[in-house]
């Protein structure tokens, strides 16, 4: 059920990446109901900016009743959020998103997450859910950033047996190059080993297009979480149009945000 919630924040922690924060807040219903790929629409006093801002759910603890988001400061609303202290109230609507990441049920599947920047958080959420459902699932996160300290969202994943494959444009950490370069190698290794793979991606649109195109070319199924401006988040404004190959437009918020890569007309 979609709710408007005024949630007390529990923590608002700066990350090593400049201007990046993880905010946790008390929200038992959201923690119980949110699925990987879903998001919340936050109203955070953006001055002359009146619309809510969408943030993917990063992590949840249904027992303790908290959820978190990972965000970077880029405008008035996120600047306001960055100043929030524990106990300050977060006004959000959620959980939002009609179609979410769906893990391939094949137990032998190699789940490959490809994320860029703050596209990684929903993939981290998906990793934890896949692990909880299958202790033996093979999971890899290929995450990209311009430089080492811009790689965010993968904290705690190695501890649950997720293989991390960082990629940096300047070679300061992991693979020197784009995520698609490393993805191509990983898919080739899987193919040689007759290992079925499945790709899930979230990040900047050019990255997701490249990941989607590469996956389609290699015959590997791929889900993309579309990064489109979502004015309302609940399906009433028709503003977050995602073009489909059949010539129609889907709503990024309620028909998505996750789409099969082959459906999207970039």
């Amino acid at each position: 059920m979609i709710r408007r919630t005024i949630a007390p924040t529990l923590s608002n922690t700066p990350l090593d990446a400049p201007n990046h924060f993880v905010m946790t807040f008390h929200a038992p219903e959201l923690a119980r109901e949110a699925l990987p790929g879903q998001f919340i629409a936050v109203a955070a006093g953006g001055g002359m900016q009146i619309l809510r801002r969408p943030f993917s759910v990063y992590s949840v603890d249904p027992e303790a009743g908290w959820a978190s988001i990972l965000y970077s400061v880029y405008g008035p609303a996120t600047s306001t959020m960055a100043k929030m202290k524990p106990g300050d109230e977060l006004d959000f609507i959620g959980p939002l998103g009609g179609r979410v990441f769906e893990a391939d049920p094949d137990p032998s599947c190699h789940h490959i997450m490809v994320g860029g920047g703050y596209g990684v958080p929903p993939l981290a959420f998906l990793c934890r859910n896949i692990r909880a459902a299958n202790p033996n699932a093979r999971i890899t996160v290929i995450s990209g950033g311009r430089t080492k300290n811009l790689l965010v969202g993968t904290d705690g994943l190695e501890e649950i047996g997720v293989t991390l494959e960082p990629c940096t444009n300047d070679g300061s950490c992991g693979y020197h190059g784009l995520v698609t370069g490393r993805l191509e190698e990983v898919l080739a290794e899987d193919q040689t080993a007759h290992q079925p793979s499945y790709v899930y991606t979230c990040g900047p649109t050019p990255m997701m297009k490249a990941v989607g195109d590469l996956s389609i070319e290699k015959g590997v199924p791929c889900q993309v979480s579309m990064e489109v401006f979502m004015p309302c988040g609940v399906g009433i404004c028709m503003g977050c149009a995602v073009a489909r190959h059949d010539g129609t437009y889907a709503r990024g918020c309620t028909d998505g945000p996750v789409f099969p890569a082959r459906e999207v007309k970039w």
Partner: peptide, 13 residues
Amino acid sequence: TGNPAPRIVETAG
């Protein structure tokens, strides 16, 4: 089918 994207931009107020 409606117009191509982008369809909405935020402006001051």
